[in-house]
Nucleic acid binder design. Sequence first.
DNA 1: TGTACATCAGTGAACGCGCGTTCACTGATGTAC
DNA 2: TGTACATCAGTGAACGCGCGTTCACTGATGTAC
Lengths: 221, 221
Amino acid sequence: MPFARRGYHHGQLRAALLHAARNLLRERGTGAFSLADAAKLAGVSPAAPYRHFRDREALLGAVARDGFVLFSARLAEAWTSHADPREAFAAMGRAYLAFARDEPGLYAAMFSQDAPLDEEGRAEAAKAFELLVKGVAGVLAAANQQGRMPMPDPLPIAMQVWSMSHGVAGLWYGGRPPACPLEPEQVLQEGVQALLEGTLAAARRRPVQVGLWNQPPDAKR
Amino acid sequence: MPFARRGYHHGQLRAALLHAARNLLRERGTGAFSLADAAKLAGVSPAAPYRHFRDREALLGAVARDGFVLFSARLAEAWTSHADPREAFAAMGRAYLAFARDEPGLYAAMFSQDAPLDEEGRAEAAKAFELLVKGVAGVLAAANQQGRMPMPDPLPIAMQVWSMSHGVAGLWYGGRPPACPLEPEQVLQEGVQALLEGTLAAARRRPVQVGLWNQPPDAKR
DNA sequence: TGTACATCAGTGAACGCGCGTTCACTGATGTAC
DNA sequence: TGTACATCAGTGAACGCGCGTTCACTGATGTAC
Protein backbone atom coordinates (compact mmCIF):
# COMPACT_ATOMS: atom_id res chain seq x y z
CA MET A 1 0.00 0.00 0.00
CA PRO A 2 1.85 3.07 -1.21
CA PHE A 3 1.07 6.56 0.11
CA ALA A 4 -0.13 5.17 3.46
CA ARG A 5 -0.98 7.91 5.91
CA ARG A 6 1.09 8.35 9.07
CA GLY A 7 -1.03 10.38 11.49
CA TYR A 8 -3.80 12.87 11.56
CA HIS A 9 -2.23 14.64 8.63
CA HIS A 10 -1.81 12.36 5.70
CA GLY A 11 1.32 13.97 4.35
CA GLN A 12 0.92 13.07 0.71
CA LEU A 13 -2.82 12.95 0.25
CA ARG A 14 -2.71 14.56 -3.16
CA ALA A 15 -0.50 11.82 -4.54
CA ALA A 16 -2.51 9.18 -2.69
CA LEU A 17 -5.75 10.44 -4.22
CA LEU A 18 -4.29 10.40 -7.73
CA HIS A 19 -3.06 6.88 -7.09
CA ALA A 20 -6.44 5.76 -5.72
CA ALA A 21 -8.31 7.39 -8.58
CA ARG A 22 -6.17 5.55 -11.08
CA ASN A 23 -6.91 2.25 -9.36
CA LEU A 24 -10.62 2.98 -9.40
CA LEU A 25 -10.43 3.94 -13.05
CA ARG A 26 -8.73 0.64 -13.75
CA GLU A 27 -11.40 -1.42 -12.01
CA ARG A 28 -14.46 0.56 -12.97
CA GLY A 29 -14.90 2.99 -15.84
CA THR A 30 -14.72 6.75 -16.03
CA GLY A 31 -18.42 6.95 -15.39
CA ALA A 32 -18.43 4.77 -12.29
CA PHE A 33 -15.53 6.63 -10.73
CA SER A 34 -16.53 8.37 -7.50
CA LEU A 35 -14.75 10.95 -5.38
CA ALA A 36 -16.05 9.34 -2.20
CA ASP A 37 -14.52 6.00 -3.13
CA ALA A 38 -11.22 7.61 -3.98
CA ALA A 39 -11.18 9.23 -0.54
CA LYS A 40 -12.07 5.94 1.13
CA LEU A 41 -9.34 4.14 -0.80
CA ALA A 42 -6.85 6.75 0.39
CA GLY A 43 -8.06 6.18 3.96
CA VAL A 44 -9.50 9.63 4.40
CA SER A 45 -12.88 11.27 4.98
CA PRO A 46 -15.00 12.21 1.93
CA ALA A 47 -14.42 15.92 2.54
CA ALA A 48 -10.63 15.71 2.58
CA PRO A 49 -10.09 15.72 -1.20
CA TYR A 50 -11.51 19.23 -1.38
CA ARG A 51 -8.32 20.51 0.26
CA HIS A 52 -6.44 19.45 -2.87
CA PHE A 53 -8.93 19.54 -5.73
CA ARG A 54 -11.68 22.00 -6.54
CA ASP A 55 -14.15 19.22 -7.37
CA ARG A 56 -14.52 15.79 -8.90
CA GLU A 57 -13.72 17.04 -12.40
CA ALA A 58 -10.51 18.67 -11.24
CA LEU A 59 -9.31 15.37 -9.78
CA LEU A 60 -10.16 13.52 -12.98
CA GLY A 61 -8.38 16.18 -15.00
CA ALA A 62 -5.26 15.84 -12.87
CA VAL A 63 -5.38 12.07 -13.27
CA ALA A 64 -5.65 12.48 -17.03
CA ARG A 65 -2.71 14.89 -17.06
CA ASP A 66 -0.57 12.43 -15.10
CA GLY A 67 -1.77 9.77 -17.50
CA PHE A 68 -0.36 11.68 -20.43
CA VAL A 69 2.93 12.16 -18.58
CA LEU A 70 3.19 8.42 -18.02
CA PHE A 71 2.04 7.72 -21.58
CA SER A 72 4.69 10.02 -23.04
CA ALA A 73 7.33 8.39 -20.87
CA ARG A 74 6.40 4.93 -22.13
CA LEU A 75 6.43 6.06 -25.76
CA ALA A 76 9.76 7.87 -25.35
CA GLU A 77 11.25 4.86 -23.60
CA ALA A 78 10.22 2.61 -26.48
CA TRP A 79 11.56 5.05 -29.05
CA THR A 80 15.01 5.32 -27.46
CA SER A 81 15.28 1.59 -26.77
CA HIS A 82 16.16 0.76 -30.38
CA ALA A 83 18.75 2.29 -32.67
CA ASP A 84 16.97 1.40 -35.90
CA PRO A 85 14.06 3.82 -36.42
CA ARG A 86 11.82 1.12 -37.82
CA GLU A 87 12.34 -1.13 -34.84
CA ALA A 88 11.96 1.82 -32.49
CA PHE A 89 8.71 2.83 -34.15
CA ALA A 90 7.37 -0.70 -33.91
CA ALA A 91 8.29 -0.72 -30.22
CA MET A 92 6.36 2.53 -29.82
CA GLY A 93 3.29 0.90 -31.28
CA ARG A 94 3.58 -2.01 -28.86
CA ALA A 95 4.08 0.41 -25.97
CA TYR A 96 0.97 2.31 -27.03
CA LEU A 97 -1.18 -0.80 -26.99
CA ALA A 98 0.38 -2.08 -23.77
CA PHE A 99 -0.54 1.17 -22.05
CA ALA A 100 -4.13 1.02 -23.26
CA ARG A 101 -4.36 -2.64 -22.25
CA ASP A 102 -2.91 -2.21 -18.75
CA GLU A 103 -4.69 1.04 -17.94
CA PRO A 104 -7.93 0.98 -19.94
CA GLY A 105 -9.80 3.25 -17.56
CA LEU A 106 -7.00 5.77 -17.40
CA TYR A 107 -6.60 5.65 -21.16
CA ALA A 108 -10.33 6.21 -21.65
CA ALA A 109 -10.32 9.12 -19.21
CA MET A 110 -7.39 10.73 -21.02
CA PHE A 111 -9.43 10.91 -24.21
CA SER A 112 -12.79 11.63 -22.63
CA GLN A 113 -14.34 15.01 -22.10
CA ASP A 114 -15.33 13.87 -18.63
CA ALA A 115 -11.77 14.61 -17.55
CA PRO A 116 -11.15 18.22 -18.60
CA LEU A 117 -7.48 18.94 -19.24
CA ASP A 118 -6.00 22.21 -18.07
CA GLU A 119 -3.34 24.09 -20.04
CA GLU A 120 -0.56 21.92 -18.69
CA GLY A 121 -2.51 18.76 -19.38
CA ARG A 122 -3.06 19.76 -22.98
CA ALA A 123 0.66 20.44 -23.29
CA GLU A 124 1.40 16.94 -22.02
CA ALA A 125 -1.04 15.46 -24.54
CA ALA A 126 0.62 17.45 -27.29
CA LYS A 127 3.99 16.12 -26.17
CA ALA A 128 2.81 12.55 -26.61
CA PHE A 129 1.64 13.35 -30.11
CA GLU A 130 4.98 15.03 -30.87
CA LEU A 131 6.69 11.75 -30.06
CA LEU A 132 4.56 10.00 -32.63
CA VAL A 133 5.37 12.65 -35.23
CA LYS A 134 9.05 12.25 -34.42
CA GLY A 135 8.76 8.51 -34.86
CA VAL A 136 7.04 8.84 -38.22
CA ALA A 137 9.62 11.38 -39.40
CA GLY A 138 12.40 9.03 -38.31
CA VAL A 139 10.97 6.11 -40.24
CA LEU A 140 10.43 8.26 -43.32
CA ALA A 141 13.99 9.58 -43.16
CA ALA A 142 15.37 6.05 -42.80
CA ALA A 143 13.45 4.95 -45.88
CA ASN A 144 14.79 7.91 -47.83
CA GLN A 145 18.48 7.83 -47.03
CA GLN A 146 19.46 8.61 -50.57
CA GLY A 147 17.04 11.51 -50.71
CA ARG A 148 15.46 10.15 -53.86
CA MET A 149 11.95 11.24 -53.11
CA PRO A 150 10.21 14.29 -51.70
CA MET A 151 9.72 13.87 -47.98
CA PRO A 152 6.02 13.56 -47.14
CA ASP A 153 4.68 15.70 -44.32
CA PRO A 154 4.87 13.45 -41.24
CA LEU A 155 1.96 15.16 -39.48
CA PRO A 156 -1.01 13.69 -41.36
CA ILE A 157 0.69 10.31 -41.37
CA ALA A 158 1.20 10.52 -37.62
CA MET A 159 -2.47 11.39 -37.28
CA GLN A 160 -3.41 8.33 -39.31
CA VAL A 161 -1.15 6.13 -37.19
CA TRP A 162 -2.57 7.66 -34.02
CA SER A 163 -6.08 7.01 -35.27
CA MET A 164 -5.37 3.38 -36.03
CA SER A 165 -3.68 2.88 -32.66
CA HIS A 166 -6.56 4.61 -30.88
CA GLY A 167 -9.02 2.51 -32.82
CA VAL A 168 -7.32 -0.79 -32.05
CA ALA A 169 -7.08 0.20 -28.39
CA GLY A 170 -10.73 1.21 -28.32
CA LEU A 171 -12.02 -1.88 -30.07
CA TRP A 172 -10.03 -4.44 -28.11
CA TYR A 173 -9.56 -2.84 -24.71
CA GLY A 174 -12.32 -0.23 -24.56
CA GLY A 175 -15.43 -2.34 -24.86
CA ARG A 176 -16.33 -5.47 -26.74
CA PRO A 177 -13.32 -7.14 -28.34
CA PRO A 178 -14.06 -8.00 -31.98
CA ALA A 179 -15.15 -11.55 -32.66
CA CYS A 180 -12.39 -12.17 -35.19
CA PRO A 181 -9.38 -14.19 -34.04
CA LEU A 182 -6.77 -11.53 -34.83
CA GLU A 183 -4.37 -10.20 -32.22
CA PRO A 184 -4.54 -6.42 -31.72
CA GLU A 185 -0.76 -6.06 -31.82
CA GLN A 186 -0.63 -7.81 -35.16
CA VAL A 187 -3.47 -5.77 -36.62
CA LEU A 188 -1.79 -2.52 -35.64
CA GLN A 189 1.70 -3.57 -36.63
CA GLU A 190 0.69 -4.81 -40.08
CA GLY A 191 -1.70 -1.92 -40.58
CA VAL A 192 0.93 0.71 -39.84
CA GLN A 193 3.41 -1.21 -41.95
CA ALA A 194 1.09 -1.15 -44.95
CA LEU A 195 0.13 2.46 -44.29
CA LEU A 196 3.75 3.61 -44.36
CA GLU A 197 4.53 1.48 -47.36
CA GLY A 198 1.64 2.95 -49.29
CA THR A 199 2.66 6.48 -48.34
CA LEU A 200 6.22 5.85 -49.46
CA ALA A 201 5.04 4.30 -52.71
CA ALA A 202 3.01 7.42 -53.44
CA ALA A 203 5.94 9.67 -52.55
CA ARG A 204 8.26 7.75 -54.87
CA ARG A 205 5.95 8.49 -57.74
CA ARG A 206 6.58 12.23 -57.40
CA PRO A 207 9.79 13.78 -58.75
CA VAL A 208 12.25 15.24 -56.30
CA GLN A 209 12.04 19.00 -56.20
CA VAL A 210 15.07 20.40 -54.47
CA GLY A 211 14.11 23.30 -52.29
CA LEU A 212 10.47 22.32 -52.28
CA TRP A 213 10.65 19.64 -49.61
CA ASN A 214 7.58 19.22 -47.52
CA GLN A 215 5.49 21.23 -49.94
CA PRO A 216 2.61 19.70 -51.82
CA PRO A 217 3.11 19.48 -55.60
CA ASP A 218 0.41 22.04 -56.29
CA ALA A 219 2.25 24.69 -54.30
CA LYS A 220 4.70 25.47 -57.09
CA ARG A 221 2.31 27.52 -59.16
CA MET B 1 -42.82 14.94 -31.68
CA PRO B 2 -42.93 11.37 -32.93
CA PHE B 3 -44.40 8.50 -30.93
CA ALA B 4 -46.71 10.85 -29.02
CA ARG B 5 -49.09 9.02 -26.76
CA ARG B 6 -52.83 9.07 -27.42
CA GLY B 7 -54.52 8.08 -24.17
CA TYR B 8 -53.95 6.16 -21.00
CA HIS B 9 -52.20 3.49 -22.99
CA HIS B 10 -49.32 4.85 -24.97
CA GLY B 11 -49.59 2.45 -27.83
CA GLN B 12 -46.00 2.47 -28.96
CA LEU B 13 -44.10 3.10 -25.76
CA ARG B 14 -41.33 0.70 -26.61
CA ALA B 15 -40.46 2.59 -29.77
CA ALA B 16 -40.92 5.92 -27.99
CA LEU B 17 -38.48 4.88 -25.27
CA LEU B 18 -35.88 3.78 -27.79
CA HIS B 19 -36.33 7.10 -29.57
CA ALA B 20 -36.06 9.08 -26.34
CA ALA B 21 -33.02 7.13 -25.22
CA ARG B 22 -31.27 7.89 -28.47
CA ASN B 23 -31.98 11.59 -28.04
CA LEU B 24 -30.62 11.51 -24.50
CA LEU B 25 -27.56 9.64 -25.69
CA ARG B 26 -27.04 12.31 -28.31
CA GLU B 27 -27.21 15.18 -25.81
CA ARG B 28 -25.46 13.58 -22.88
CA GLY B 29 -23.10 10.63 -22.84
CA THR B 30 -23.67 6.96 -22.13
CA GLY B 31 -22.83 7.56 -18.49
CA ALA B 32 -25.26 10.41 -17.97
CA PHE B 33 -28.12 8.52 -19.59
CA SER B 34 -30.95 7.85 -17.15
CA LEU B 35 -33.99 5.63 -17.38
CA ALA B 36 -36.09 8.19 -15.52
CA ASP B 37 -35.29 10.88 -18.07
CA ALA B 38 -36.08 8.56 -20.95
CA ALA B 39 -39.48 7.88 -19.39
CA LYS B 40 -40.09 11.59 -18.84
CA LEU B 41 -39.11 12.35 -22.43
CA ALA B 42 -41.58 9.73 -23.62
CA GLY B 43 -44.25 11.38 -21.47
CA VAL B 44 -44.68 8.45 -19.14
CA SER B 45 -44.17 7.60 -15.46
CA PRO B 46 -40.74 6.30 -14.35
CA ALA B 47 -42.13 2.84 -13.72
CA ALA B 48 -43.61 2.40 -17.18
CA PRO B 49 -40.39 1.35 -18.97
CA TYR B 50 -40.29 -1.80 -16.85
CA ARG B 51 -43.23 -3.15 -18.83
CA HIS B 52 -40.96 -3.26 -21.89
CA PHE B 53 -37.41 -3.64 -20.61
CA ARG B 54 -36.03 -5.72 -17.78
CA ASP B 55 -33.83 -2.87 -16.52
CA ARG B 56 -31.71 0.08 -17.57
CA GLU B 57 -29.08 -2.11 -19.19
CA ALA B 58 -31.64 -3.92 -21.28
CA LEU B 59 -32.90 -0.63 -22.71
CA LEU B 60 -29.35 0.48 -23.50
CA GLY B 61 -28.66 -2.86 -25.12
CA ALA B 62 -31.75 -2.54 -27.30
CA VAL B 63 -30.71 0.99 -28.29
CA ALA B 64 -27.28 -0.31 -29.24
CA ARG B 65 -28.80 -3.11 -31.28
CA ASP B 66 -30.99 -0.65 -33.17
CA GLY B 67 -27.90 1.51 -33.58
CA PHE B 68 -26.13 -1.30 -35.39
CA VAL B 69 -29.15 -1.86 -37.61
CA LEU B 70 -29.14 1.81 -38.60
CA PHE B 71 -25.36 1.78 -38.95
CA SER B 72 -25.45 -1.23 -41.26
CA ALA B 73 -28.17 0.41 -43.33
CA ARG B 74 -26.07 3.54 -43.79
CA LEU B 75 -23.01 1.56 -44.77
CA ALA B 76 -24.97 -0.63 -47.18
CA GLU B 77 -26.63 2.43 -48.70
CA ALA B 78 -23.23 4.03 -49.32
CA TRP B 79 -21.86 0.83 -50.81
CA THR B 80 -24.67 0.39 -53.30
CA SER B 81 -24.77 4.06 -54.26
CA HIS B 82 -21.69 3.80 -56.50
CA ALA B 83 -20.87 1.33 -59.24
CA ASP B 84 -17.10 1.67 -58.96
CA PRO B 85 -15.92 -0.28 -55.90
CA ARG B 86 -13.32 2.31 -55.00
CA GLU B 87 -15.85 5.12 -55.02
CA ALA B 88 -18.32 2.97 -53.14
CA PHE B 89 -15.73 2.13 -50.53
CA ALA B 90 -14.82 5.79 -50.10
CA ALA B 91 -18.51 6.58 -49.68
CA MET B 92 -18.69 3.91 -47.00
CA GLY B 93 -15.91 5.63 -45.11
CA ARG B 94 -17.70 8.95 -45.29
CA ALA B 95 -20.93 7.30 -44.14
CA TYR B 96 -19.09 5.74 -41.22
CA LEU B 97 -17.76 9.08 -40.03
CA ALA B 98 -21.05 10.85 -40.66
CA PHE B 99 -22.81 8.33 -38.44
CA ALA B 100 -20.30 8.79 -35.63
CA ARG B 101 -20.50 12.58 -35.99
CA ASP B 102 -24.30 12.80 -36.01
CA GLU B 103 -24.89 10.20 -33.31
CA PRO B 104 -21.81 10.32 -31.07
CA GLY B 105 -23.62 9.08 -27.99
CA LEU B 106 -25.29 6.22 -29.83
CA TYR B 107 -22.01 5.33 -31.50
CA ALA B 108 -20.20 5.30 -28.16
CA ALA B 109 -22.93 3.14 -26.59
CA MET B 110 -22.71 0.66 -29.46
CA PHE B 111 -19.05 0.04 -28.68
CA SER B 112 -19.28 0.32 -24.90
CA GLN B 113 -19.73 -2.53 -22.48
CA ASP B 114 -22.30 -0.38 -20.67
CA ALA B 115 -24.77 -1.43 -23.35
CA PRO B 116 -24.68 -5.23 -23.36
CA LEU B 117 -25.66 -6.71 -26.71
CA ASP B 118 -27.84 -9.79 -26.82
CA GLU B 119 -27.40 -12.52 -29.41
CA GLU B 120 -29.37 -10.60 -32.02
CA GLY B 121 -27.43 -7.43 -31.30
CA ARG B 122 -24.14 -9.20 -31.78
CA ALA B 123 -25.42 -10.55 -35.07
CA GLU B 124 -26.26 -7.01 -36.20
CA ALA B 125 -22.78 -5.83 -35.24
CA ALA B 126 -21.26 -8.70 -37.17
CA LYS B 127 -23.38 -7.73 -40.17
CA ALA B 128 -21.92 -4.23 -40.16
CA PHE B 129 -18.42 -5.67 -40.10
CA GLU B 130 -19.32 -8.02 -42.95
CA LEU B 131 -20.17 -5.00 -45.06
CA LEU B 132 -16.72 -3.61 -44.44
CA VAL B 133 -15.12 -6.91 -45.39
CA LYS B 134 -17.22 -6.98 -48.54
CA GLY B 135 -16.05 -3.47 -49.37
CA VAL B 136 -12.41 -4.33 -48.88
CA ALA B 137 -12.78 -7.48 -50.97
CA GLY B 138 -14.44 -5.45 -53.71
CA VAL B 139 -11.64 -2.90 -53.82
CA LEU B 140 -9.01 -5.63 -53.82
CA ALA B 141 -10.74 -7.44 -56.67
CA ALA B 142 -11.01 -4.23 -58.68
CA ALA B 143 -7.29 -3.63 -58.27
CA ASN B 144 -6.57 -7.15 -59.40
CA GLN B 145 -8.70 -7.51 -62.52
CA GLN B 146 -5.96 -9.28 -64.42
CA GLY B 147 -5.40 -11.73 -61.57
CA ARG B 148 -1.69 -10.91 -61.54
CA MET B 149 -1.21 -11.17 -57.79
CA PRO B 150 -2.38 -13.44 -55.00
CA MET B 151 -5.48 -12.04 -53.37
CA PRO B 152 -4.73 -10.90 -49.83
CA ASP B 153 -7.12 -12.00 -47.12
CA PRO B 154 -9.61 -9.12 -46.79
CA LEU B 155 -10.37 -9.81 -43.13
CA PRO B 156 -7.26 -8.38 -41.45
CA ILE B 157 -7.35 -5.44 -43.85
CA ALA B 158 -10.97 -4.77 -42.98
CA MET B 159 -10.01 -4.90 -39.32
CA GLN B 160 -7.29 -2.33 -39.94
CA VAL B 161 -9.70 -0.08 -41.81
CA TRP B 162 -12.28 -0.51 -39.05
CA SER B 163 -9.66 0.40 -36.46
CA MET B 164 -8.64 3.55 -38.27
CA SER B 165 -12.27 4.59 -38.77
CA HIS B 166 -13.07 3.87 -35.13
CA GLY B 167 -9.98 5.81 -34.09
CA VAL B 168 -10.78 8.86 -36.19
CA ALA B 169 -14.35 8.79 -34.91
CA GLY B 170 -13.18 8.46 -31.32
CA LEU B 171 -10.56 11.18 -31.54
CA TRP B 172 -12.68 13.77 -33.31
CA TYR B 173 -16.21 13.02 -32.17
CA GLY B 174 -15.72 11.04 -28.97
CA GLY B 175 -13.87 13.50 -26.79
CA ARG B 176 -11.31 16.18 -27.38
CA PRO B 177 -10.73 16.83 -31.08
CA PRO B 178 -7.00 16.87 -31.88
CA ALA B 179 -5.36 20.26 -32.02
CA CYS B 180 -4.05 19.74 -35.55
CA PRO B 181 -5.91 21.45 -38.38
CA LEU B 182 -6.67 18.28 -40.35
CA GLU B 183 -10.17 17.26 -41.28
CA PRO B 184 -11.21 13.83 -40.00
CA GLU B 185 -12.64 12.82 -43.38
CA GLN B 186 -9.37 13.62 -45.08
CA VAL B 187 -7.29 11.79 -42.48
CA LEU B 188 -9.39 8.65 -42.86
CA GLN B 189 -9.66 8.80 -46.62
CA GLU B 190 -5.93 9.30 -47.19
CA GLY B 191 -5.05 6.82 -44.47
CA VAL B 192 -7.18 4.06 -45.94
CA GLN B 193 -5.91 4.93 -49.40
CA ALA B 194 -2.30 4.52 -48.29
CA LEU B 195 -3.14 1.40 -46.29
CA LEU B 196 -4.68 -0.33 -49.31
CA GLU B 197 -1.92 0.82 -51.59
CA GLY B 198 0.71 -0.58 -49.24
CA THR B 199 -1.13 -3.86 -48.96
CA LEU B 200 -1.40 -4.16 -52.72
CA ALA B 201 2.27 -3.29 -53.15
CA ALA B 202 3.18 -6.10 -50.78
CA ALA B 203 0.87 -8.52 -52.57
CA ARG B 204 2.41 -7.66 -55.96
CA ARG B 205 5.78 -8.72 -54.66
CA ARG B 206 4.58 -12.29 -54.21
CA PRO B 207 4.32 -14.65 -57.17
CA VAL B 208 0.90 -15.87 -58.22
CA GLN B 209 0.25 -19.40 -57.11
CA VAL B 210 -2.69 -20.82 -58.98
CA GLY B 211 -4.82 -22.92 -56.68
CA LEU B 212 -3.36 -21.36 -53.60
CA TRP B 213 -5.40 -18.17 -53.54
CA ASN B 214 -6.02 -16.74 -50.15
CA GLN B 215 -3.36 -18.91 -48.59
CA PRO B 216 -0.28 -17.42 -46.97
CA PRO B 217 3.02 -18.18 -48.77
CA ASP B 218 4.25 -20.35 -45.91
CA ALA B 219 1.31 -22.71 -46.26
CA LYS B 220 2.80 -24.51 -49.25
CA ARG B 221 5.26 -26.61 -47.28
C1' DT C 1 14.82 26.15 25.00
C1' DG C 2 10.09 27.19 25.79
C1' DT C 3 5.65 29.17 24.73
C1' DA C 4 1.88 31.45 22.22
C1' DC C 5 -0.24 31.47 18.13
C1' DA C 6 -1.29 31.34 13.10
C1' DT C 7 -1.95 28.04 9.63
C1' DC C 8 -4.05 24.57 7.46
C1' DA C 9 -4.90 19.47 6.52
C1' DG C 10 -8.30 16.36 7.76
C1' DT C 11 -12.99 15.21 10.44
C1' DG C 12 -17.67 13.79 10.63
C1' DA C 13 -22.15 14.88 10.25
C1' DA C 14 -25.38 16.59 7.35
C1' DC C 15 -27.68 18.41 3.07
C1' DG C 16 -30.08 17.84 -1.24
C1' DC C 17 -30.43 15.39 -5.21
C1' DG C 18 -31.38 12.04 -8.71
C1' DC C 19 -31.38 7.58 -9.73
C1' DG C 20 -33.00 2.45 -10.32
C1' DT C 21 -36.42 -0.24 -8.86
C1' DT C 22 -40.71 -2.09 -6.43
C1' DC C 23 -45.59 -2.41 -5.49
C1' DA C 24 -50.33 -2.14 -4.98
C1' DC C 25 -53.28 0.18 -7.89
C1' DT C 26 -56.22 1.75 -11.95
C1' DG C 27 -58.12 2.13 -16.17
C1' DA C 28 -58.34 0.81 -21.06
C1' DT C 29 -58.74 -3.13 -24.31
C1' DG C 30 -60.38 -7.09 -26.23
C1' DT C 31 -62.52 -11.52 -26.00
C1' DA C 32 -65.84 -15.33 -24.60
C1' DC C 33 -70.40 -16.18 -24.04
C1' DT D 1 -75.57 -6.71 -29.76
C1' DG D 2 -74.63 -6.66 -24.92
C1' DT D 3 -72.27 -7.99 -20.78
C1' DA D 4 -68.84 -10.06 -17.65
C1' DC D 5 -64.33 -10.70 -17.14
C1' DA D 6 -59.32 -11.61 -17.97
C1' DT D 7 -55.41 -9.17 -19.44
C1' DC D 8 -52.07 -6.00 -19.19
C1' DA D 9 -50.04 -1.24 -20.01
C1' DG D 10 -49.34 2.65 -17.31
C1' DT D 11 -49.71 5.21 -12.46
C1' DG D 12 -47.82 7.44 -8.53
C1' DA D 13 -45.93 7.09 -4.33
C1' DA D 14 -42.33 5.28 -1.96
C1' DC D 15 -37.89 2.86 -0.90
C1' DG D 16 -32.95 2.72 -0.33
C1' DC D 17 -28.81 4.10 -1.99
C1' DG D 18 -24.71 6.55 -3.20
C1' DC D 19 -23.03 10.56 -4.65
C1' DG D 20 -20.97 15.58 -4.66
C1' DT D 21 -20.50 19.11 -1.75
C1' DT D 22 -20.68 22.20 2.51
C1' DC D 23 -19.60 23.55 7.16
C1' DA D 24 -18.25 24.23 11.69
C1' DC D 25 -14.87 21.75 13.93
C1' DT D 26 -10.31 19.70 15.62
C1' DG D 27 -5.83 18.55 15.99
C1' DA D 28 -1.07 18.57 14.20
C1' DT D 29 2.73 21.54 12.44
C1' DG D 30 5.81 25.07 12.29
C1' DT D 31 7.25 29.68 13.25
C1' DA D 32 7.94 34.18 15.81
C1' DC D 33 9.38 35.86 19.94
